[in-house]
């Protein structure tokens, strides 16, 4: 078993300082991706810097036309937050269906975004809602944040503090879970606001992406039937033992229709 040092971060600056001094140290939020990876020897950090004491990074509030959620807010806290549910109910539903109870109790919004697992749910919401990721150094628009499989625009000593979600008119997230693991084989976030409709897809590719041709179809008629007859195509869809690329393409359409219907009915 890999040995590591355990550090408790007292301040954000302190945590960043650790990272600057030791480039093999890693931040620990909920640890729901990091710790299993560590136990499977996929990663070997020299130290874990536990952020959980930084309570200022927890919680949610509405700030003007946006909802701001702290990076260390756990999935269960998002799922049960009345503030979030009245602003963007799609987010509470998304969080309520992540993993299992044990994962939801510990996993965090910031941790999910920083690890950028290809089948994670949050990236679809962040990209679809055109959220902004606030770190200890800058604000990163969602479109620039997710750079590849398990990769983000974050620098080594950068720490996510909060995510600012513009409040949409309508939104819904629907995923198709693996029948065994319940991970999203495909997850689709549909958003509608003054800037028009947006669709973000997770699980289907190595990294979350926008399905712009579907957005175009919804521009004049935000209705699931506006997608009828469309076939989704994309070169880089994952083709693996869980699902073929063709099946994933089909599921993007099926989940998009469901999400549009759900968003329409909720108004």
């Amino acid at each position: 078993m890999h040995a590591f040092e355990y550090q408790h971060a007292e301040t954000i600056e302190g945590a960043a300082e650790f990272l600057t001094q030791d480039n093999k140290a890693q931040l620990l939020a909920g640890g729901m991706t990091l710790l299993p990876a560590l136990k499977s020897s996929l990663v070997a950090p020299t130290a874990l810097i536990d952020l959980k004491g930084l309570i200022e990074l927890k919680g949610a509030c509405v700030d003007g036309d946006a909802l701001v959620i702290g990076a260390l807010t756990t999935h269960v806290e998002v799922a049960e937050s009345e503030v979030i549910n009245s602003a963007i109910p799609a987010l509470t539903r998304l969080a309520a269906n992540i993993g299992d109870a044990q994962v939801r109790n510990r996993g965090t919004l910031g941790g999910s975004l920083a690890s950028n697992d290809p089948s994670a749910d949050y990236p679809a919401a962040v990209l679809g809602l055109e959220a902004v990721i606030r770190t200890n150094r800058r604000d990163i628009p969602a479109a620039e944040f997710f750079t590849g499989k398990f990769e983000t625009a974050l620098q080594t000593d950068e720490i996510i503090l909060a995510v600012r979600f513009p409040i949409p008119e309508q939104a819904a997230y629907v995923k198709f879970p693996n029948p065994a693991s319940h991970f999203a084989i495909v997850g689709v976030m549909v958003v509608r606001d003054a800037r028009g409709p947006r669709i973000a897809v997770t699980g289907a590719s190595a990294c979350v992406f926008r399905a712009r041709e579907l957005e175009d179809a919804l521009r004049t008629d935000f209705n699931e039937h506006a997608l009828d007859g469309l076939k989704f195509h994309r070169e880089d869809l994952i083709d693996d033992l869980y699902a073929t690329a063709e099946y994933r393409a089909h599921l993007v359409m099926a989940m998009a229709r469901r999400a549009v219907a759900m968003a329409s009915t909720r108004g």
Binding site: L28, G31, P36, L48, Q102, N105
Partner: peptide
């Protein structure tokens, strides 16, 4: 590997998988 859930204990009343819960937490 945090899959089976049989090592679950309650920490401050919340179920967590103890095999991936750093003791010092």
């Amino acid at each position: 590997e945090a899959e089976c859930g049989i090592c679950t204990v309650l920490v401050d009343g919340t179920p967590v998988v103890s095999c991936v819960y750093p003791a010092l937490k």
